[in-house]
Write a protein that binds this DNA or RNA. Structure first.
Lengths: 234, 234
DNA sequence: CATTTTTGTTAATGTAAGGTTAAAAGGTAA
DNA sequence: TTACCTTTTAACCTTACATTAACAAAAATG
């Protein structure tokens, strides 16, 4: 049934604890890559695709949060779980801000960890499978390559898109002809839903509309109070 | 900005703690329904749509897990967060088995709770509900798409509907040829039943009638003192 | 049949959301 | 540092929406 074993990136500087945890996870049928610090963790992250990252918060050179931020820049979807020595409110809050999926206090029960991992994987499984892999879109006369961040009209010169322009257009394309809820874009792209991020998004919608003017069949419609709709008229 | 405040069902038997928590959540712009025990909790759950359930584990008559199971039978999607007095491994495992989304140990920091709630809501926001065709209605010669909020007559140009127009027409369509009690619409759509909301509803009925004039087989009839009836004559 | 209650309809009003442009603020690399 | 690119914030304007008021008509009441 499963394509491959789930891959976990474990970044933990304590060699004893790290090894024990790695072995335990491997016994439970996960493929584990163990990095001993934040730098190494990021290197390994870039080299491979992981289904989950488990990051120790307290590490020399580069702490878990900084690493998480770097990871988030590369990948907005991969679940991140933090390990922390004790419940520190600041840590927890900071973690959620960076986009943590869960939190574990050391020492923790290994069975609990497994349950949490399972729960998180399940959650992710339901979040539209194709979602992360898709990066080439046809939008009327346009070709969007969201990996290289460019938009081409009828094979002409590609226009370079900024990261935000790109992600927003990609989300719209993913929901072509359908509603792309405002909230969805804000939480997916901006990781926050407030007045200012919302206005910022409107600014980007305006930019995208300008790009898309080349093809009058393509338009971004607003559904008041709900979100936007990228439609391609035939 | 938001169509409506996020609704939380809080089931907590300790009156002091429950009230404080409710007030705190309400201060943070959530709409909170407080049930004092599992039975009441389930009743209220059935009556309304909630965006999140916060359940105390230890309760007389019906504990949080049992309640969670019942809720899951009705609704597989709504996020559930458990409150428990202390970290008990069995509880945590049991909770995740029942499909908990998160776990909180009492006493907990209220800011942490807020962050968790936010995180959970965000997660849910991304799980595009899209699938079901529950949004499309045929009303005589009309097609109502209540997700994209438009009404089309015989495949012509779609007319945009406002949120209230849309919800009202959808409710009528749901009860096609049958009585749609006034009170029902008011509590479902306006979440309040008084003179003014009632008049407001009449205004919307008038608007809908104007749209529906295109097909003389379709009409909205009033049943004096009772409600309205959307009929499609053959 | 006079009176009250409910409903039909249109218009006016106030507020919130969205469109657009420009300036400010952040960030990064030369 | 400058220069450049991206993102956010601000400002101003337009449109969309919901509510309320006002008055007319219909239905119920007694």
């Amino acid at each position: 049934m499963e394509e491959h074993k789930k891959r976990i990136l474990l970044v933990e500087d304590d060699p004893n604890f790290g090894t024990v945890l790695k072995d335990y996870l491997m016994m439970n049928d996960y493929e584990v890559t163990h990095a001993k610090n934040g730098m190494e963790g990021f290197e390994k992250f870039k080299k491979d695709d992981f289904d989950l990252c488990i990051l120790d918060v307290m590490m020399p050179y580069k702490d878990g949060f900084t690493l998480a931020k770097e990871i988030r820049e590369k990948n907005t979807d991969v679940p991140i779980v933090f390990l922390t020595a004790k419940t520190m409110k600041e840590d927890v809050l900071k973690g959620y801000k960076v986009g943590a999926d869960d939190y574990l206090n050391k020492p923790f029960d290994s069975e609990v960890l497994l349950m949490k991992i399972k729960a998180i994987m399940q959650r992710k499984a339901t979040e539209t499978i194709s979602d992360s892999k898709q990066f080439e879109f046809k939008i009327g006369g346009f070709d969007l390559n969201s990996k290289l961040r460019f938009l081409k009209y009828n094979g002409g010169e590609p226009v370079k898109l900024s990261p935000k322009e790109n992600e927003l257009l990609r989300l719209l394309a993913l929901h072509e002809n359908d509603l792309m809820p405002r909230e969805l874009a804000l939480t997916k792209i901006w990781r926050d839903d407030n007045y200012f991020t919302s206005r910022s998004m409107d600014v980007y919608i305006a930019k995208l509309r300008k790009y898309l003017k080349l093809d009058e069949k393509v338009e971004i419609l607003n559904i008041h109070g709900e979100g936007f709709r990228l439609v391609v008229n035939t």
